[in-house]
């Protein structure tokens, strides 16, 4: 792997390798000494053109636990907001000797552009580009699903050792919400499908992209229909931007209340999920909009665990991109 730009670039073997590596990383995070010397001397730049404290600190923790030096470069208050282009920023990072750039950008394709334009030659890790991709989010979601749902003792709290080396074949995963604007949805559809899971998108027609017919997924337009029709092993509630649910002519939905009525996960709907099903959310949650506190805080919810799995998956990604010889593999 030279870059991690999109989950659609990953083969089944690539994906399983990342998940298996993440398992080993997670094991080290249960020790008293969680720091590893692996990436000593490497410099990782977190280049954030869009605010996302959660993602940034997750990458920062991952890099630091592997002993890499971390430089945070955020668009606010930097030369970027003074009109410096992505190109000049990249040339600067190149001159500073960045071995890897973790980039979050508002423009779809920005990570790919950075990786392939020849502006710099370090590894590029996409931490979310516009409404396109957010590969480490999908990887941590797949990791969480595998840990809980694959193997002899599958179910909440399953011992994950049995999952090692396996894909997600046989699982049915529901993604609920705004697919149109969601890089999390796009990344998950590609990755989960590659890993053999069946994906059901549960979304209002206004928030499903035109052209979705080629995606290897089922699409249904109501959460009740989905719960009736499918035995979901995991349900992932996508974050809904309130402004998309109201605002007159530009709204995709009549009102937040109506969204909650048709697509929100509450206690009643939760109880209609199969016994073993887990509840996920990429965060940050809008409690009371796409998910109620009862569902979010229930024992079936693995939302908090997703966060710590995120660090392990990002450690694995950084390891696989940076530990080997340059341009290796």
């Amino acid at each position: 792997m030279k870059h991690l730009l999109s989950t659609s670039d990953l083969s089944r073997e690539d994906a399983i390798r990342i998940l298996d590596t993440a398992e080993q990383m997670a094991a080290t995070q249960e020790r008293e000494i969680r720091k590893l010397p692996t990436l000593r001397g490497k410099t990782v730049v977190n280049l954030f053109f869009e605010d996302s404290t959660r993602t940034r600190i997750s990458f920062e923790a991952a890099a630091k636990r592997l002993s890499a030096d971390v430089i945070n470069f955020s668009a606010k208050g930097s030369s970027v907001s003074k009109g410096e282009s992505l190109k000049d920023t990249a040339l600067t990072l190149q001159a500073m000797g960045a071995d890897a750039v973790v980039i979050r950008h508002w423009a779809s394709g920005a990570a790919e552009r950075l990786a392939e334009s020849g502006w710099m030659h370090g590894a590029v890790l996409n931490a979310g580009d516009g409404t396109h991709q957010h590969p480490t989010q999908a990887l941590l979601d797949a990791y969480t699903m595998r840990k809980h749902l694959i193997g002899a003792e599958a179910g909440p709290g399953a011992h994950f050792k049995t999952a090692t080396g396996n894909d997600l074949a046989g699982l049915t995963i529901g993604l609920v919400g705004d697919v149109l604007h969601s890089r999390v949805a796009r990344s998950n559809v590609a990755l989960l499908t590659t890993l053999g899971a069946k994906v059901v998108l549960v979304s209002p027609p206004t928030l499903v992209p035109v052209g979705i017919e080629t995606w290897p997924v089922d699409v249904v337009h109501g959460l009740d229909v989905a719960l009736e029709r499918y035995d979901l092993d995991a349900i992932m509630m996508l974050r809904v931007q309130r402004e998309r649910m109201s605002g007159g002519g530009n709204a995709f939905f009549p009102s937040p209340a109506e969204y909650t009525r048709l697509f929100g996960l509450d206690g009643d709907r939760m109880r209609r999920l199969p016994e073993h099903a887990i509840i996920m959310h990429p965060g940050p949650m809008n409690r009371g909009l796409e998910i109620t506190a009862e569902a979010a805080d229930s024992p079936r919810s693995v939302i908090v665990e997703q966060v710590s799995n995120g660090v392990a998956v990002r450690m694995a990604s950084l390891y696989l991109l940076l530990a080997g010889e340059e341009g290796g593999e």
């Binding site: 394709g109 580009d129 396109h132 796009r186 035109v210 052209g211 979705i212 017919e213 995606w215």
Partner: peptide
């Protein structure tokens, strides 16, 4: 163009 490719690339159609 809004269609199969824009859906995948996440670019506004």
């Amino acid at each position: 163009h809004e269609g199969v490719v824009s859906a995948e690339l996440g670019l506004t159609g």
